[in-house]
Amino acid sequence: MAISLAKGQKVDLTKTNPGLTKVLVGLGWDTNKYDGGNDFDLDASVFLLDASGKCASDKDFIFYNQREGGNGSVVHTGDNLTGAGDGDDEQVIVDLSNVPSTIQKIAFVITIHDGENRNQNFGQVSNAFVRVVNEQSNEELIRYDLGEDFSIETAIVVGELYRHGGEWKFSAIGSGYQGGLAKIATDFGLQVG
């Protein structure tokens, strides 16, 4: 039975699941009725952060055009352009045992591609969630449903895996941003060109 989290909650991952080494992080969403003439293209991306909360280099930013990071320990399985269908829209596989020791946090983000120009925002998105699944047994361990707390934001840091006392934990963040992916990337120390 998955642990269902509310915004701001933190939960042990590896301590309560001994032997857990690989997780699948699934992110999903639905778009509400929208007649702006453009498709919604939501994207999941991942930032690998050091102790200062920053990416050491561009290689620590994982998304549909750079699908691997952390020496292959974090893999984005591919872009979903429509968000159609049930279940996860995009997935990231994390091999916890092989994440480089310099990486302290793995932040998961959902953004609306070109949201500002298309006049799209998270007020038009529903049923957004993140879930953490034991990759070996396919058992859902943690789920965080984001609810309808967003209106004008074009990007959300949904949650993060982080190291604590030699174990991995998960934190439900649910922080919305205006300015899309570029704003979050800048906050995480990357140069956006």
Rank of each mutant, 00 (worst) to 15 (best):
K59F: 04
F61H: 08
F63I: 02
F63D: 02
Y64M: 04
G69M: 07
N71Q: 08
G72R: 06
G72V: 14
H76S: 06
T77Y: 03
D79E: 09
D79I: 02
L81N: 13
T82V: 04
G83R: 05
A84F: 09
A84Y: 07
A84P: 02
G85F: 08
D86E: 13
D86M: 12
D86C: 04
G87E: 01
G87C: 10
D88R: 08
V92N: 02
V92S: 08
V94A: 03
L96H: 02
V99W: 13
P100C: 15
I103E: 14
I103T: 14
I103N: 12
I103W: 10
I106Y: 07
F108N: 12
V109D: 11
I110R: 04
I110N: 12
I112P: 04
D114G: 07
E116I: 14
E116A: 12
N117F: 03
R118C: 09
R118S: 08
Q120F: 09
Q120N: 09
N121G: 06
F122K: 10
G123Q: 13
Q124L: 15
V125Q: 11
S126E: 08
N127I: 06
A128W: 07
F129T: 00
V130R: 04
R131N: 06
R131F: 01
V132W: 00
V133Q: 11
N134Q: 05
E135K: 02
N138L: 01
N138G: 00
E139F: 01
L141I: 02
